[in-house]
C-alpha cells in the first residue's frame, strides 16, 4: 500500500495561515492597535495644554486652575521625594530580607517566607491606605510632635507607607536575582573553604547586584505610580515647594504627588475645559514617562544578571 509516487510532484502552494494562527495574530494586533490608538488620543487631548504652557509645566510650581496656571513642579517634587524616600527606607530591609531568604534560610522554610512576602504584595493599596489613616497617621504625628506638624498627613507619612508597600516588590525581585546565581558556584566557593558570609560577599553579591539595583528601580516605578494609599494620607495640599532642594521642612507638611492629584476630584472637574483637561492629561504623561523610564531600566538590569541569559 505504500507505493512511492513517481515523477514530478505537484506541490501545494504555501497556504495562508490557518484559523488559529490568524485569530491569535489578529487579536494580538488588535490589542496593540487599541493601545496605540488610546495613546494617540491621550496626547491629542493633552495637546492644548502642552501648546499653551509647554515647558512652564515642568518649571513652575504654581497650579491654580481657575487662573489657568498649570505648573506641575510641586507635584513632581512630591512624587520624587515620597518615592525616593520610600525606596531609601525599603531597599536596605528588602535586600537584607532577600539575602536571608535566599542564602541563610533552609530550603524547607523558603516557601513560607516567600508566602509572607507575597501576602504583603497581595494586599490592595486601599487597605494600606486604611491602615495608614487608622494607625500610621497618628503614630507619625505623635512621633514628630517635637517638630509640631499640622497633622499626621504629610510627605513623610506617605513615604513610610509607600516603603511598606514597595517592600515586597523589591524583596521578590532581589531574591530572584540572588537565586539566579548558580548553586554550583556557591558549592565551589564553599569547597575552597570560604564560609557562608564570604561566599555571599565574593561570589553571590558581585553577580547579583545589577539585578538588585534593577529590583530597586522596579520598586521606584511602582512607588511613583501608587495612587490610592498615598492619596489618603498625603494631605493633598497644592503648590508646596521647598526653599532649596535639601530643605527638609516640606517633609512634615502636607503635599501633593502626581498621582494624588490625578486621583482627586479635580480630574472630573477638568473634563469640560480643554486646557484644564489637557493639563491633567499632561500630568498623566509625565507620570507615564517617569514610570516607563525606571521600569524599563530596572528590567534591563534584572536581565543583565549573568546567570540569567
Amino acid at each position: 500500500m505504500h507505493a512511492l509516487p513517481h515523477g514530478r510532484l505537484t506541490w501545494q502552494k504555501r497556504r495562508p495561515p490557518d484559523a488559529v494562527v490568524f485569530t491569535c495574530l489578529a487579536a494580538a494586533a488588535l490589542f496593540l492597535a487599541l493601545l496605540g490608538f488610546t495613546l494617540i488620543l491621550w496626547v491629542r487631548e493633552a495637546w492644548p495644554a502642552i501648546r499653551a504652557h509647554g515647558g512652564e509645566m515642568l518649571t513652575s510650581g504654581e497650579w491654580f486652575y481657575r487662573h489657568q496656571h498649570f505648573g506641575a513642579l510641586a507635584m513632581i517634587y512630591g512624587s520624587a521625594v515620597v518615592s525616593l524616600l520610600a525606596l531609601l527606607l525599603a531597599a536596605p530591609v528588602a535586600f537584607a530580607t532577600a539575602i536571608f531568604i535566599s542564602e541563610w534560610l533552609p530550603h524547607t522554610l523558603r516557601p513560607w517566607a516567600k508566602a509572607a512576602v507575597e501576602f504583603l504584595a497581595a494586599i490592595p493599596s486601599v487597605i494600606y491606605g486604611l491602615l495608614g489613616i487608622m494607625f500610621l497617621r497618628t503614630w507619625m504625628a505623635d512621633w514628630l510632635a517635637p517638630f509640631d506638624p499640622l497633622s499626621g498627613d504629610m510627605l513623610l507619612t506617605a513615604a513610610v507607607l509607600l516603603a511598606v508597600m514597595i517592600l515586597p516588590t523589591v524583596t521578590t525581585f532581589a531574591e530572584d536575582s540572588l537565586r539566579a546565581v548558580p548553586a554550583a558556584q556557591r558549592l565551589a566557593a564553599r569547597g575552597l573553604a570560604l564560609n557562608r558570609t564570604q561566599t555571599i560577599h565574593r561570589i553571590v553579591l558581585p553577580q547579583a547586584w545589577p539585578g538588585m539595583i534593577g529590583a530597586a528601580l522596579l520598586g521606584l516605578g511602582r512607588g511613583l505610580g501608587e495612587t490610592i494609599a498615598v492619596f489618603l494620607i498625603i494631605g493633598r495640599l497644592d503648590n508646596r515647594l521647598p526653599e532649596s532642594l535639601l530643605d527638609p521642612a516640606p517633609l512634615i507638611e502636607p503635599g501633593q504627588t502626581l498621582t494624588s492629584k490625578l486621583g482627586g476630584p479635580e480630574t472630573h472637574i477638568a473634563m469640560g475645559d480643554p486646557l484644564h483637561w489637557g493639563a491633567i492629561l499632561t500630568l498623566g504623561l509625565i507620570l507615564l514617562v517617569l514610570t516607563t523610564l525606571f521600569v524599563s531600566l530596572g528590567n534591563l538590569l534584572l536581565r543583565k544578571n549573568p546567570a540569567h541569559p
Binding site: G7, R8, L9, W11, Q12, K13, R14, R15
Partner: peptide, 15 residues
C-alpha cells in the same frame, strides 16, 4: 526533493 528545490517559494514546509 524529486528534482524540486525545497527552498522554492511554492513549497509549503509543513507539507
Amino acid at each position: 526533493f524529486h528534482g524540486h528545490d525545497i527552498h522554492d517559494a511554492d513549497v509549503d514546509p509543513d507539507t
